[in-house]
Design a protein around this nucleic acid. Structure first.
Length: 903
DNA sequence: CAGGGCATATTT
DNA sequence: GACAAATATGCCCTGA
């Protein structure tokens, strides 16, 4: 039997260099300032090819320097192209070096463009019976597609161009592509084509005649007189164009199988290159995608000395060593991701690079015969953990803080959190998992939790992981965290983020931990009663809807609902989603005018939402021991610097509707306590006023006016006392819209007015608040220049969208720059207030506690006898946390439950 | 049957 | 496509 021949992958280098260069903008540079975004993008593309295709044979083909034979043919060839940007020029040799070091063959033939070289290799390889995949997104190369032997693939878009796909894209078969390009021309390469003939005409001509030669031979048969005339006068141009776009198959190269085989990578060379370019994370990529043994070794962590502590003498020795340490990395292994429910299974500690210890405690496996009791371990560690030194570091150390506190140990001396540091360095990054941080900043591959305990259905409790396996994992966590600290600290320093870390985010860790632990009391009986009421309402709406629809269906299924509304009832389609007509709230509101069913669906949805998401779910989250609800405050999630809350999310508890307020009534204070709610009044608009220095906006806040009323008076040109409720409502929407960068379209939709009216309203706003307009322009310009937006306390969010070549993406980037500055500064302010207030409360040993944060609001559970003091202290701290050009104002409310406190 | 994508809903 | 930041739920399809 004949062995199957490997497929040859030909990689079109230029197109990916350009694409990577422009796609990533100017964000990536090496420590020495060398731009690296093209190297980065090229690497990503190569990794994808290697990972997904594991090619045995491949070759990267470069374009040679101009001129090529085409310039001899037509001096203006590619004359309209800008010169390669200098920032890209310097990256080309880096990319070539990288390709060489990776052991990937490459070619560059003077006088012949990469396309011609590839065409030649395609011919030679297919003649020998090899299949070829052309790795490129370029449409010129479609002419080489020749199934089944020759295919084109674009790994970045993940599109495979078969002959059929080419027809779909261009409307002609692959062999007709060059004739199509010859007729229509190609503006990027300055190929003239036939003047007046575009893509449509060219395609039609080829459909009628099959080829350019036929078109020219039977030019008198062309049905349209004008096209006929154009063709007659441009025969020369058409033939020249065809020469230009035709790929030559006679480049002076020889396809030699052995020369296209992948060679082993030069590990040391790559390491040096990546180190120099500040792309250490690539080392970890390599380990995954290069089968080469050396590459895997290279990216594996340096050998680490793990000690498993199984008896008391060993534990005492370890404690003695730790007492001498200045920094201690700590990682608890437990039975749950939820710190309030987790039981300790083991403790990993590291205080010297490449060394760590694991103390198994609660493993239930065959190799767990000798484990120290939890109490012994905790009592042994207590003095170290409660002291300021050694300094404690960790990855999400709030988790350890809460668990230790539950065991009566208060962790002191928290010095660094790698998760928080990674977040501050790049808050837009969706992952701050340890393995990703290690890959990026240490260039090492690391086992994940899933690798050790399994994922999904196959996941086992950590206690069932064998001690040796658990130890390796836990030690690697603690030890890599320790080594990350100085590296991340330095990067924070270089970015000017150290003060934000030291004075805001790090002190906040313990504050959030205390809030989570205290939790909030929920009146489950009240919720159960509410559940029954909602149940009844749901049943009633359901019956009504079935009656109108003429039969039962699943109202909660968008698909079935779509069939009923737009099929059976023939209601007009207002807007569409990706999958079909939309049935969301705004659509149903409009449909209410056409058909009574719409309002019932709105009512049903609203009841179902409240019941399923809040009323029936909150009681399930009551902690079995504390009887309270303990949310998680996530410090490293949002791109703007806000906190988020989950399990449950207490930041989106309903407030607008009557039923919603009933839910807030179920959030109650303990007996002897009350709830104090304190919220910043108009904080985002105040920040706007502060930053912009706009005289009218500043005056409104200084006078203590109702800003929305003032805005209404300004944009409707009436005196404040003549502002109607409707005018105020519209002005309020405009004010919020400005913060979010809303355009005429969005405002029109929101206010249900015409787009021209909305446009006029925005224009009037900016005419009255010219300082605001100028500031927005300034912020956008600065973000363009720096590549990031910056908040009041120096938080940075990178905005790659600003470098997009897509206009709407760029505009999104500009809105992000404005909104992040405002929203992020508000987040900075309230975080600082939380720290100040917490410090005040810790200092006086009071019984009251901060329990909730909802972006511009803090909620406290206040001991009745402390209520007066708390009220004054909280207001004072919140209002004086920073000094802006206008005062910060805090509104307060007090009551037995959250609804009452909110007024 | 788990997991992911989508549509929808809630908050600031 | 058009207005920023989040989390949660139910449906429905995909793939083991």
């Amino acid at each position: 039997m004949m062995e199957k021949k490997p497929t040859l992958y030909l990689i079109d280098a230029s197109s990916y260099m350009y694409r990577a260069f422009y796609a990533l903008g100017r964000r990536l540079t090496a420590p020495d300032g060398t731009p690296t975004q093209a190297v980065f993008g090229f690497h990503q593309m190569l990794q994808k090819v290697l990972r997904e295709k594991q090619p045995e044979m491949l070759c990267v083909v470069y374009d040679p320097p101009a001129p090529t034979f085409r310039h001899a043919l037509y001096p203006q060839y590619k004359a309209t192209r800008d010169r390669m940007p200098e920032d890209l020029v310097v990256q080309v040799p880096l990319i070539k070096t990288m390709v060489d070091l990776m052991g990937i063959p490459s070619l560059e033939v003077p006088g012949y463009e990469a396309d011609d070289v590839m065409a030649t290799l395609v011919r030679q390889a297919t003649e020998k019976g090899y299949a070829v995949v052309i790795v490129s997104g370029d449409k010129d190369l479609h002419q080489l597609v020749n199934e089944p032997l020759v295919l084109q693939w674009d790994p970045q878009k993940d599109e495979l161009y078969t002959a059929e796909e080419v027809v779909k894209r261009l409307g002609v078969r692959p062999h007709q592509v060059r004739d199509l390009l010859a007729l229509m021309g190609d503006s990027t390469d300055n190929v003239p084509g036939v003047p007046g003939v575009g893509e449509k005409t060219a395609r039609e001509l080829l459909r009628l005649f099959g080829s350019l030669d036929e078109v020219l031979r039977r030019v008198h048969e062309i049905p349209s007189a004008s096209v006929r005339k154009k063709m007659e006068s441009a025969q020369e141009a058409a033939l020249l164009s065809r020469q230009l776009v035709s790929l030559r198959e006679d480049a002076p190269v020889n396809f030699v199988v052995a020369e296209c085989r992948r060679r082993p990578a030069d590990v040391a060379g790559l390491r040096a290159l990546y180190e120099r370019l500040g792309l250490r994370r690539f080392l970890a990529d390599l380990a995954k995608n290069l089968p080469s043994q050396t590459a895997a070794e290279m990216a594996a962590p340096p050998a680490r000395r793990d000690v498993i502590v199984r008896n008391e003498p060993a534990f005492r020795r370890v404690l003695e060593e730790m007492r001498q340490a200045s920094v201690l990395s700590i990682d608890l292994e437990t039975t749950s991701q939820d710190a309030m429910l987790a039981d300790i299974v083991g403790v990993a500690l590291s205080w010297r690079d490449h060394e760590a210890v694991y103390i198994p405690i609660g493993h239930e496996t065959r190799d767990s015969e000798s484990q120290l009791p939890l109490a012994v371990v905790l009592e042994g560690l207590r003095p170290l953990l409660e002291a300021e030194t050694p300094k404690k570091v960790g990855q999400n150390i709030k988790y350890e803080w809460v668990i230790l506190k539950r065991h009566g140990i208060e962790l002191h001396g928290i010095d660094f959190d790698t998760m928080v540091a990674s977040y501050l360095l790049d808050p837009g990054n969706p992952s701050h998992r340890l393995e990703r941080i290690v890959a990026e900043h240490l260039g090492e591959a690391k086992a994940t939790y899933g690798d050790v305990a399994g994922v999904g259905a196959k996941q086992v409790p950590f206690a069932h992981v064998p001690v040796t396996k658990a130890a390796a994992y836990a030690c690697s966590d603690a030890e890599t965290t320790l080594r990350l600290v100085p590296i991340l600290r330095k990067k924070l320093e270089q970015a000017g983020l150290s003060p934000l870390m030291d004075t805001l985010e790090r002190p906040l860790i313990a504050v959030l931990a205390r809030m989570e632990m205290r939790g909030v009391r929920v009146d489950t009986e009240k919720l159960e009663a509410l559940s029954r009421i909602l149940e009844e309402g749901l049943r009633r709406e359901e019956q009504t809807i079935y009656a109108i629809a003429g039969g039962p269906f699943n109202i909660q299924s968008p698909v079935q609902l779509r069939d009923i509304l737009f099929g059976k009832l023939q209601l007009p389609v207002i807007k569409k989603t990706k999958t079909g007509p939309s049935t969301d709230m705004s659509v149903l509101e409009e449909l209410a005018a056409h058909h009574p069913i719409a309002q019932h669906i709105v009512a049903y949805r609203s009841l179902a939402k409240l019941k399923n998401t809040y009323v029936d779910t909150l009681p399930l989250l009551v902690h079995p021991h504390t009887g309270r609800i303990h949310t998680s405050y996530n410090q490293t999630v949002t791109a703007t610097g806000r906190l988020s809350s989950s399990e449950p999310n207490l930041q989106n508890i309903p407030v607008r509707t009557e039923e919603g307020r009933r839910i807030r009534e179920a959030f109650v204070a303990d007996p002897g306590y009350g709830l104090l709610a304190a919220d910043y009044s108009q904080i985002e608009l105040r920040i706007f006023a502060h930053y912009s220095g706009d005289s009218r906006l500043l005056a409104a806040f200084e006078a203590g006016d109702d800003v929305h009323r003032r805005t209404a008076a300004e944009i409707f040109n009436v005196s404040p006392q003549d502002v109607t409720a409707e005018m105020r409502r519209q002005a309020k929407t405009v004010n919020f819209g400005i913060i979010y960068g809303m355009g005429p379209y969005g405002l029109a939709k929101q206010l249900k007015i015409s787009q021209s009216q909305a446009k006029e309203m925005i224009e009037r706003y900016f005419a009255r608040y010219q300082g605001v307009k100028r500031w927005i322009e300034r912020v956008i310009a600065q973000a363009h220049k720096r590549g990031y937006a910056e908040t009041l306390l120096g938080r940075r969010r990178f905005i790659p969208e600003l470098q997009s070549r897509n206009r709407s993406m760029r505009q999104l980037g500009e809105r992000l720059a404005v909104n992040t500055t405002i929203q992020g500064s508000a987040a900075d302010i309230i975080k600082k207030a939380m720290i100040d207030i917490d410090q005040e409360m810790q200092g006086c040993g009071c019984r009251s506690a901060m329990i909730l944060q909802v972006h511009d609001e803090l909620v406290f559970e206040v001991a009745e006898e402390e209520a007066g003091w708390m009220r004054a202290m909280v207001k004072e701290r919140m209002e004086s946390v920073v000094t802006l050009r206008i005062p910060l104002v805090v509104d307060m409310g007090y009551g037995k439950n959250w609804a009452e406190a909110h007024s």
